[in-house]
Amino acid sequence: MSIQHFRVALIPFFAAFCLPVFAHPETLVKVKDAEDQLGARVGYIELDLNSGKILESFRPEERFPMMSTFKVLLCGAVLSRVDAGQEQLGRRIHYSQNDLVEYSPVTEKHLTDGMTVRELCSAAITMSDNTAANLLLTTIGGPKELTAFLHNMGDHVTRLDRWEPELNEAIPNDERDTTMPAAMATTLRKLLTGELLTLASRQQLIDWMEADKVAGPLLRSALPAGWFIADKSGAGERGSRGIIAALGPDGKPSRIVVIYTTGSQATMDERNRQIAEIGASLIKHW
């Protein structure tokens, strides 16, 4: 067993022997301040990774656009098919120029040779490549099948209805392509620590998230040296922004954090800054 596999296998073990965790309302004060600064709703939840206990939450059962955070769930569904012998990570998928959609920095470079399922998941999570996500959605049967996968996990809230990039439209009061912070946090925890996926697939999923290259201005910008984070960000229309993450000190994750916002007129930089400040408060009061 590799060191990384050992780390993920012992996530519940280490967490069980940690000192009790206590909620700190100071972080919620910052979440509410972010709402004021952005002029928009902000949803927040913080779960203990081992027990699933909610440590703090704000608007945990209000719907927010998922945006690209759905790509972690998508690759979880792909990995479940791999575990069941219905898919192979090494299978190569070929596609054409007509398949390319807006923001496809990886797939646009491989029109000639195609990409493997493993490479597509890596591109979808680490670079948020939209064509990679659409190609992977095709392998599982489309958005409705991802929703069905989530329902089978016990998540009857999260739903995907459309493809990239239309799913980022974020129309107010439109339930399409949305989740709730509580539902997303619980589902992410199941994917990373539950028995739904094999140990190898859980490790692969967290490795992809740990290698995320496009979430630097968010929670990662607030992390002290030595902290662990595996995350996936999302951005959408109407001032929408979000991030889902597993993080913790001492090089291992111990909490799940989900943050979503929508309806702001603020710039992307300002949305990023507010999420980073929430992260800084979380870490300060850990």
Rank of each mutant, 00 (worst) to 15 (best):
E46K: 15
T198M: 05
V106T: 15
E164V: 00
T138S: 07
G43H: 01
A222W: 02
T261P: 01
G52K: 04
P105N: 07
D155W: 01
N98A: 10
G43I: 00
T186H: 09
L196N: 08
Q97A: 07
K144W: 03
T187Y: 15
E166V: 10
A200S: 04
F70R: 02
L247M: 15
I54R: 10
R118H: 09
R238P: 07
A280N: 12
D231L: 12
V157D: 08
K232I: 00
E164M: 00
V72G: 06
R162Q: 12
M184V: 04
E145A: 09
M153G: 02
K144A: 03
G39D: 08
T193G: 07
Q204G: 04
A123K: 06
A77K: 02
D36I: 03
G85R: 08
A246H: 04
A235L: 14
D250R: 03
R162C: 12
A183V: 11
L205Y: 04
A225D: 13
E35Q: 12
K53E: 05
L150Y: 04
K53C: 12
P249I: 14
E61S: 05
I140Y: 06
H110V: 11
P65N: 10
T261S: 10
I206D: 11
I244V: 13
D155T: 02
A123L: 09
S104R: 12
A245L: 05
I278L: 12
N134I: 09
S221T: 11
G251T: 05
V157R: 11
V78I: 15
L38W: 08
R91N: 11
L74H: 01
L135N: 06
L282A: 10
C121S: 04
T178C: 07
R63M: 15
E237P: 07
E175D: 12
T116F: 13
G76A: 06
L49V: 14
V82A: 11
T139D: 12
G263V: 12
T262D: 09
L146Y: 05
D161S: 03
D269N: 08
A230I: 03
R202E: 12
G52N: 14
M153W: 02
V257Q: 02
P249L: 07
G234Y: 04
V106S: 15
E46A: 15
T27F: 06
L55S: 06
T158G: 06
I171K: 15
A225E: 02
A34R: 09
D212S: 14
S68A: 00
I45S: 12
A170N: 03
R189S: 04
L74C: 10
T158S: 06
E108G: 14
D48A: 05
D207F: 05
N152E: 15
K71G: 00
G263F: 13
Y103Q: 04
Q203V: 07
G154W: 12
E108L: 13
M180I: 02
W227R: 00
A84F: 07
I259A: 06
E270W: 15
G239Y: 15
S264V: 09
I125S: 02
L197F: 15
H156N: 10
P165V: 05
N168A: 08
T178R: 06
E62P: 00
N173D: 09
L28C: 03
I229C: 06
R220E: 06
Q274S: 10
P165K: 13
L55Y: 11
E87G: 12
A40D: 12
P105A: 08
G236H: 04
G114W: 11
M127H: 11
M66C: 06
M127E: 13
G142A: 04
A84W: 13
L73M: 09
D231Y: 14
A123R: 02
L136W: 00
L223Q: 08
G90N: 15
K53Q: 07
A246K: 06
I244C: 13
L160M: 11
V82G: 08
Q86V: 10
I140H: 08
L135P: 00
T138F: 07
I256R: 00
W208S: 09
L111I: 04
I243D: 13
L191N: 04
G263W: 10
K144S: 03
L188H: 06
D212T: 07
G234L: 01
L196T: 12
V257Y: 12
L74M: 14
L55E: 04
N50S: 08
A183M: 09
L28K: 05
D129W: 00
G90V: 12
S240H: 04
K232D: 00
K71F: 00
S96V: 12
G251V: 13
L100W: 15
F58A: 09
I206V: 13
G90E: 10
E175R: 10
A182R: 07
G85F: 11
Q88G: 10
A246W: 11
K232S: 01
I283W: 02
S57V: 05
A222H: 05
E61T: 04
A124V: 15
G226D: 11
E56I: 05
D212A: 13
Q88W: 13
P224F: 03
R91Y: 15
L73F: 04
A235S: 14
S281E: 10
R91T: 13
V101E: 07
Q265M: 07
A222T: 06
S96Y: 06
R202C: 07
H151L: 09
L111C: 05
D231G: 10
M180K: 02
A133Y: 01
S104I: 14
W286G: 04
I171S: 15
G236A: 08
E61Q: 14
F58G: 11
A215R: 10
T267E: 09
K252S: 08
T178D: 02
A77H: 05
E145P: 12
F64K: 01
T69F: 01
L49H: 13
D33C: 02
Y95S: 07
P165Y: 09
L199E: 05
A133C: 05
K109I: 04
C121T: 07
E61D: 08
T116A: 15
T112G: 14
L79W: 01
L191D: 01
R92S: 07
A235I: 15
L28G: 06
N98K: 09
I278M: 14
D174T: 13
L282S: 07
L167P: 13
P181N: 01
E26V: 14
M66S: 13
S264Q: 11
N134D: 08
V82Y: 09
M115F: 12
G39R: 04
E210V: 14
T178I: 01
A211C: 10
L74E: 04
T138D: 05
L74F: 01
A183N: 15
H156R: 09
M67P: 00
W286E: 06
L135M: 12
T69R: 00
A182L: 11
L167W: 01
Y44L: 04
Q37R: 08
T139R: 12
P60A: 10
P60M: 13
T178S: 05
D36S: 09
G263Y: 10
A230K: 01
I140L: 10
E61K: 06
G90M: 14
S201G: 12
V257M: 10
P217S: 11
R238E: 15
T187A: 14
T261A: 11
D129I: 00
E61G: 05
P253Y: 03
S80L: 15
R273P: 10
V106C: 15
Q88A: 10
A40G: 07
V82I: 13
P25E: 07
G43A: 05
L135Q: 13
D99Y: 05
E102A: 11
G142E: 08
R162I: 01
R92I: 06
D99R: 05
I171T: 15
T139C: 13
E195R: 10
A230Q: 03
P143M: 07
D250S: 02
D48H: 05
M268R: 10
R255K: 03
Q97D: 15
E145N: 11
T138M: 14
G248K: 07
K190S: 08
C75M: 10
L47W: 11
T158F: 07
T186E: 15
G248E: 01
N272L: 12
K190C: 12
T69I: 12
S201M: 15
A246F: 07
L192E: 06
A34G: 05
P105I: 02
S104V: 11
L192V: 04
S281C: 13
R63T: 14
P217R: 12
K71Q: 00
S233R: 01
K213W: 06
